[in-house]
Design a protein around this nucleic acid. Sequence first.
DNA 1: GTGATTTAATAATGACCGGTATCAAATCCG
DNA 2: CGGATTTGATACCGGTCATTATTAAATCAC
Lengths: 199, 199
Amino acid sequence: MGRHREFDVDEALDAVVRVFWRRGYEGASYDDLTAATGVKRPGLYSAFGNKEELFRRALERYADQYLTYMTEAYDQPSSRAMAEHMLRGVVELTTRFPENLGCLGVNGALTCSEASEPIYRLLVEFRAGGEADLRQRLEEFQASGDLPETADCAGLATYLMAVIHGMAVQAKSGVSREGLGKVVEQTLAGWPTAPKMAG
Amino acid sequence: MGRHREFDVDEALDAVVRVFWRRGYEGASYDDLTAATGVKRPGLYSAFGNKEELFRRALERYADQYLTYMTEAYDQPSSRAMAEHMLRGVVELTTRFPENLGCLGVNGALTCSEASEPIYRLLVEFRAGGEADLRQRLEEFQASGDLPETADCAGLATYLMAVIHGMAVQAKSGVSREGLGKVVEQTLAGWPTAPKMAG
DNA sequence: GTGATTTAATAATGACCGGTATCAAATCCG
DNA sequence: CGGATTTGATACCGGTCATTATTAAATCAC
């Protein structure tokens, strides 16, 4: 019983995601958040908790809504196709909204004051988790003969994640979709090729 | 005439550089800056102006002190040697100080509140300037036959800067020197080779 | 309708932010 | 020395930060 909530929690969270995506965790104020959501301060607090919890919720929603191309990539038939799917997905994501260039995983808090270090660590772990998943998938590709036995899967994962984060920085700096496409091309041009199979 | 300044301006600026490098522009407070420099607030203001001017001074000093490997790279005899020199320099720079991982050009302000957008734009231009210089040098290498005529120098410059910025993000996330070395190897493995010259 | 309960809106809280006014200490000139 | 001038240190300023106390409005059970 009691009065009903007058705003849609997921809609508000979507707006919150866009604010953090654009401004980062510390750069986003409650004035920004209330303006974007149309929800007053106490409404956000009662629905999501404090700013740190709000960011955690926003990061989860961001992953669910926008990082689907990562799991799609894992279903591709070769490591090269996987890399291409991921890279094309990054180009699309990081340039899709002119107001939210780049990606939340990097924009959220590359640096911050001491007070926000929990969020900084959250994002470090978030990115490290993506790299660990990628490494594991690369090792599967290697086991199935799609990558040479001499390939360093951990190193390749670190490399590909570096390119992805670098593209996010470039996108945030205003590099166009076409410019980022060149990054994709060069990355794929250097991708290791499977050894010629007998038979 | 009058009382003499009791601190060394360059030493103080070096300490300021390290604070901004670690915390970013907005994440660095005057409490952090005064603690690191040993100079009280009014001392910093009288020597450097306000926070924005202080950051501009710090960025200049950072470039002079730490980005020398970039100009060294331009003196290398081939585009590949140049790329390797740059990439090894980035590994060294971004992991040199455990308290200041990554690079100031990216850490400074990838995102920020509306109030700090002048600094945000300064850093966008700072990075874009580096990419423009790199592109020009690549075109010279291409003109001298070190890169194939089919190579896209602008695209290569965007790619290499993406790798560099991505390595800075990875370093800031705690990736080791060895891990970043793998990024260098993979980047060089895909570097375009000059066409075989006749004679 | 009445009372209990939940949300919405306003406005206030203490802490910290960048930036300065103030005054004491130090230096130079004469 | 004495007076002018600059720096150093303390303490303060208004503004903004995240957070919350308070009160009005809305909904439910009965």
